[in-house]
Simulated assay, not measured.
Amino acid sequence: MHRLTELFRERPFAVALHGGEPLTAGRDYVTNALYELAVPSSVVRVSLQTNGVMLGSSG
């Protein structure tokens, strides 16, 4: 993700995480990717397509 934000640092861009089930990459990976994409102002939208129903924990 860092390399992607470097390549597009001067131009606004949107990121869509999908294709199969992106959450199978693991919670830590997805969390780190989203944090990385939250920093640069050039990222104007991030979307996540998932088949998951429960995205949080019940406690």
Rank of each mutant, 00 (worst) to 15 (best):
T50Y: 07
D28W: 01
G19R: 01
T31K: 13
V46H: 05
Y29F: 15
G20A: 09
T50R: 04
V46F: 06
E36M: 03
Y35S: 04
A16C: 02
M1S: 12
L7H: 08
P12R: 10
A16Q: 10
F8K: 04
S58Y: 13
A25C: 11
P12E: 13
R3F: 02
S57D: 15
R11D: 09
V30N: 02
V39I: 09
R27G: 11
L4G: 04
G19P: 00
Y35I: 03
E21Q: 08
V43M: 04
H18S: 14
V46K: 06
L48A: 08
M54A: 15
V30M: 14
G19W: 06
L37W: 03
S57P: 12
P40A: 02
E6P: 01
S47P: 01
N32P: 05
A16M: 11
H2T: 14
G59M: 07
Y35V: 10
G56P: 01
Y29Q: 13
T24H: 14
P40H: 01
T5L: 00
E6Q: 15
L55T: 11
L34H: 01
G20D: 08
M1G: 12
G20N: 06
E10R: 14
L37S: 01
A25W: 07
Q49P: 00
G20V: 10
S47E: 14
Y35A: 11
H2D: 13
